[in-house]
C-alpha cells in the first residue's frame, strides 16, 4: 500500500493493489496513462515537451520528459510487470495539456504535447479511449491501482473521473 508520486518528466508503473499513482498540477504537461486489464498494471508518464531533439542529453537522463522518448520508456517499464511490449490490449487515457487564456500558437505547448503523444501512440496502433485535455486550469491526477480509477482535481472544482 503505497504512493508512487511522479514529478515532471517521471514515469512509473505498479500492479500492487492499494497503491496510488499520483502526479500534481499538470499545466501544459500531459499525463499518458496506460491501464493493462490482463496484468492489472497501471502506468503513467508526466510529459513536459513534445520532442527530445532539443536536448538529447536530457532525454537520455530523463526519457519521461519528452513525448517521443516517454512512451517507449513507459512501455518498457511495464513489460517488467508482464505487459505486452507494444502495448497490446492496454487501455490509454490522456489528461492535462492546459493553455493560458488568450494564448497564441507559440504558447500552445499543451496542444503540441497532446498532438505529439497521439502521433506516437498511433505508431504503436494505440489510441486514447478517454481524454481531458486543454482548457485553462491545472490538473492533479490520482490513479487507484486496485480499481483502475482515475480521479482528477483542480482547486475550486469538484473532483471528477476520467
Amino acid at each position: 500500500m503505497g504512493q508512487i508520486i511522479l514529478g515532471v518528466g517521471d514515469y512509473g508503473a505498479s500492479n500492487t493493489p492499494g497503491d496510488d499513482v499520483k502526479t500534481f498540477a499538470l499545466g501544459s504537461c500531459v499525463s499518458v496513462i496506460f491501464l493493462d486489464p490482463k496484468t492489472r498494471t497501471i502506468g503513467m508518464a508526466h510529459i513536459a515537451l513534445p520532442d527530445s531533439s532539443i536536448n538529447k542529453a536530457k532525454s537520455a537522463e530523463k526519457p519521461g520528459y519528452f513525448a517521443d522518448t516517454a512512451i517507449p520508456a513507459l512501455l518498457a517499464q511495464m513489460t517488467k510487470f508482464g505487459c505486452d511490449k507494444r502495448g497490446k490490449g492496454m487501455v490509454v487515457k490522456l489528461c492535462g495539456g492546459a493553455n493560458v487564456m488568450d494564448t497564441n500558437d507559440t504558447f500552445q505547448i499543451g496542444k503540441r504535447n497532446a498532438l505529439a503523444i497521439k502521433k506516437i501512440l498511433w505508431s504503436y496502433g494505440m489510441g486514447a479511449i478517454a481524454e481531458d485535455l486543454g482548457k485553462n486550469y491545472s490538473r492533479t491526477v490520482v490513479i487507484s491501482v486496485s480499481a483502475g480509477q482515475i480521479t482528477l482535481s483542480s482547486p475550486g472544482k469538484p473532483n471528477w473521473l476520467l
Binding site: V8, F24, A25, L26, G27, S28, C29, A48, A98, N99, V100, M101, D102, T103, N104, F107, I109, G110, N136, Y137, S138, P155, G156
Partner: peptide, 19 residues
C-alpha cells in the same frame, strides 16, 4: 512558470497572455 505546473493554486493559468 504556471504552464510548467508551478502556480499558486486556484489562479494558475487563469490569466491572459498579452500577445
Amino acid at each position: 512558470a504556471m504552464m510548467g505546473g508551478f502556480g499558486t493554486g486556484s489562479d494558475s493559468m487563469r490569466y491572459k497572455l498579452d500577445q
